[in-house]
Every structure is written in C-alpha cells, then in structure tokens.
C-alpha cells in the first residue's frame, strides 16, 4: 500500500430508513433527522442525515476495506451538501500517507448535489 492508492468506492443509497435508523441508533432525536415538516421550516427541503451517521459510515468504509483487524485511530470529517432521502452517496478514498502501520486516508462522500463529506481517517493496519 502506498500514498496515492485508491480505495474501491462504496455506494450508499440514502434512504429515509437509513437516515432515521442512523439518527435513532446514535440517539439523535433532532427533528430534522426524522420529521420533514420541521426540516422544511429550517430551510431544508426534507430530512437529512445526521453527522453521527455520516461518521459511522466513513468508519465503516475504512474498516470494510482494511478488514476487521484494522483499528480506527482518528476520524475527522466535515459536512457539505446534505444527504437527503432518494440520493446516493459514493464514498471514495485515497491513501494520503503510510507511516509504519498507520495509514491516513482522505475520504470524500459525494452525493447528487455535491460533496456531502470530506475528511481524513487514520487507521492502524497490523502488518
């Protein structure tokens, strides 16, 4: 594995179910993550995914790729275009740095309206 290597993309259909299930599993009962009307009143066309779910999906993307022995050390993400129901997010990753068994991956999750998430993940991959 080398800097510049690309991870295979992971496509995640953004269903209403995923958004609500993610919000509840992360104990986030903010109405914008499950109730369309309050979401609209706050300027959003529909409910949208909460950051904890995005964080979980980014973590899953990395450990799916590097396998069950990989240990997440740091996940830093920034949200952009929201994930609304009916969209699809495609996560892609590029190895930014390999330092011994620590690998830093730049992750981008793009949806139909732009970049939902950009971030970096540091993961320890036992040799």
């Amino acid at each position: 594995m080398n800097a510049g290597d690309r991870l295979p993309p992971l496509e995640i259909p953004i269903t209403r179910t995923l958004i609500v299930a993610g919000a509840i599993a992360s104990r986030d009962y903010q109405d914008v993550h499950h109730d369309p009307e309050p979401a609209r009143q706050k300027g959003s066309p529909d409910i949208f995914m909460n950051i904890l779910t995005t964080n979980g999906l980014v973590g899953r993307y990395i450990t799916d790729h590097f396998g069950p022995r990989a240990e997440l050390r740091r996940v830093a993400i920034r949200l952009g275009a929201p994930n609304h129901p009916g969209d699809t997010m495609v996560l892609t990753g590029t190895v930014e740095e390999v330092d011994g068994d620590l690998v830093t991956v730049r992750v981008v999750g793009a949806n139909g309206i732009g970049k939902h998430v950009t971030g970096t993940v540091t993961v320890r991959v036992p040799g």
């Binding site: 995923l18 599993a25 986030d28 964080n55 979980g56 899953r60």
Partner: peptide, 30 residues
C-alpha cells in the same frame, strides 16, 4: 443497533471480544 443502521458487518463488533465501533464515541454521551 448501530451496526444494523450503518450496514456495518465488521466482525470486530460482535462476539465475546467485541469492541464498540469507535465512531460510536459520541453516541455514548447522547
């Protein structure tokens, strides 16, 4: 519940030696 929602099948999160998904960190404080 978290793994179901995320579609995460990482075996590290199940079984006798399971750990919590690290990205759940905030969830424990909610």
């Amino acid at each position: 519940h978290w793994c179901e929602a995320m579609g995460d099948t990482n075996p590290a999160y199940t079984g006798p030696n399971a750990i919590a998904p690290p990205t759940m960190l905030q969830a424990w404080t909610m």
